[in-house]
Design a protein around this nucleic acid. Sequence first.
DNA 1: AATATACATAACGACACCTTTATGAAAGAA
DNA 2: TTCTTTCATAAAGGTGTCGTTATGTATATT
Lengths: 147, 147
Amino acid sequence: MNRVAGDRSRPTRQILPLALTPVVEGDLATYFEGLANPTRLHIVERLAQVKEARVSDVAMLLGISQPRMSWHLRLLRRAGLVLTRREGREVFCRLDRTSIAENLSAFTALLAGDGQPGPAESRLGPAETVNPPSPRHGVERSLPEVI
Amino acid sequence: MNRVAGDRSRPTRQILPLALTPVVEGDLATYFEGLANPTRLHIVERLAQVKEARVSDVAMLLGISQPRMSWHLRLLRRAGLVLTRREGREVFCRLDRTSIAENLSAFTALLAGDGQPGPAESRLGPAETVNPPSPRHGVERSLPEVI
DNA sequence: AATATACATAACGACACCTTTATGAAAGAA
DNA sequence: TTCTTTCATAAAGGTGTCGTTATGTATATT
């Protein structure tokens, strides 16, 4: 097992015993992978509306086949976007809003530039200057708080 | 041209004349595709720290080859995450924070369940009830406002 | 002019994604 | 038990991702 080409392997997420698990970089990529597909976005959109739904009902509603639904549900679970619960032979799924908020929060922290290399331009282009971190750019601070 | 298997084609984003372009579903998937890779997340992380950087400097810093950097930069541009500016033979890149905020905002709107099918459980599982939309779940309303 | 630098692109290989079709397994209904 | 429903999974094919190496192109330098 040598991980030759492509860093797309996923080394089985660490589970820290009772500590709110920090979102590391690889997990963040896996999280966004879950969202990087129109079909899965539709599923997420649907689950955002109904809170919980039977798997095959969602598949029916979106007009996708059952194995296809199963496939995408698998990726959504891996991404930490969706939780499932079995009830007899049926499976119900819902958004994992906690995990979603954690990952989204980790991403915005990344965007905020947390980490040492503060205002150090790596060879800044001409006619461009480092601004003090005060009045951000405009759209740079706004987001509906409805996670 | 028939789009047989896999809905991963991208039909050349509509450009509406002077109107703040709404983020449609396919674009949102493309946006998240840009974030669905550790290397690209590292690039984004770096650009969040330095605001603008020379392409090959970022590549050097992250220890990735030049063609690899060029490849990922291409996807980052396609995703609307990064803007580039040519200066002679050099290329500088920076985050497209406007586009990033737009897409992130579109996603949170999707999570909020915008769209008709309000509190209609599609065959709700037993021992589970629809809550009124008042005091949300807890982590469900919080996000660092540092986009 | 010739050379060096910065970036883009093509070619290739390995693998992952995504779809359909076909089967399998488990739980409920007849 | 037998049939049906619900979901998971395997197989197979098409396509995209993602990495390296090699080559091309444009700009700066000598």
